[in-house]
Amino acid sequence: MEKNHVFDQIPDYLDGNLNKSAKTAFEKHIHQCADCQKEMEEMKMLFNLFEEEVPTPSSRLRAKFESALEQEKTNQGRVVQMSGKKSSNWTGSALKIAASIALLVAAFQMGSLFQQRKVSDDIAQLQEETNQMKQTAMLSLMENQSASKRIQGVNYIEEFEQPDEAIIQALANRLLYDENDNVRMTAFEALANFSSSETVKNAFIEALGQEKNPSIQVAIIQALVQIQEKKAAEPMKKLLEKEDTQPFIKNQIRAVLPSIT
């Protein structure tokens, strides 16, 4: 009989879900089988426990919660009042405001300082770039087919406070090799402002040896005499010997030659 335990039917029996014949068979078995009876008793206890343990909040609990909430609310209110009291201490808060303003200003100053440094860097870079552009424009103008444009290129020298070697060399080439007298003269005038440069001195001496235009000859002679350039004596003597040198150039050379030899 033990083999026919009815454990699986216990929950259905307890819930009253078994039909009549099954119920009779079940009760009959329970009476005879101690195991099943015991099992049913335990399960019944468990079921009862479930039913008892579902808690429902009592009205007392609710009242307790309400009062706790009230308590908390009044505590909060007190904090607000305390801070209100502190604000009446105006020196302290003024100091705080001052400190925060100071902090703000300092931060602003720092920011603007960095900004400024960046801007001045940018300006320096821009200036460098415009100088480069000017130099390129100047050098390309000096190669133009039109003499007037080449003169314009030479005049660009006024834009540079300290022209670099490339510009000086380009001007020297104009003085030495340009086919147009006006361009050579303008190049000479531009270079005369930088007569302390060794490149310029050498260009003047070379130009004096080959220049045909008397106006440029006399200008170069005067510039070289003014900087007391000893090396100028040789090309001047050669000009004196030349037949086609203009008389006023010869007179000029005779007048200045003693001062540099």
Partner: peptide
């Protein structure tokens, strides 16, 4: 647009 240059020696 571009410079004018007028030179004479004598």
């Amino acid at each position: 647009s571009s410079p004018i240059s007028l030179y004479s020696t004598n």
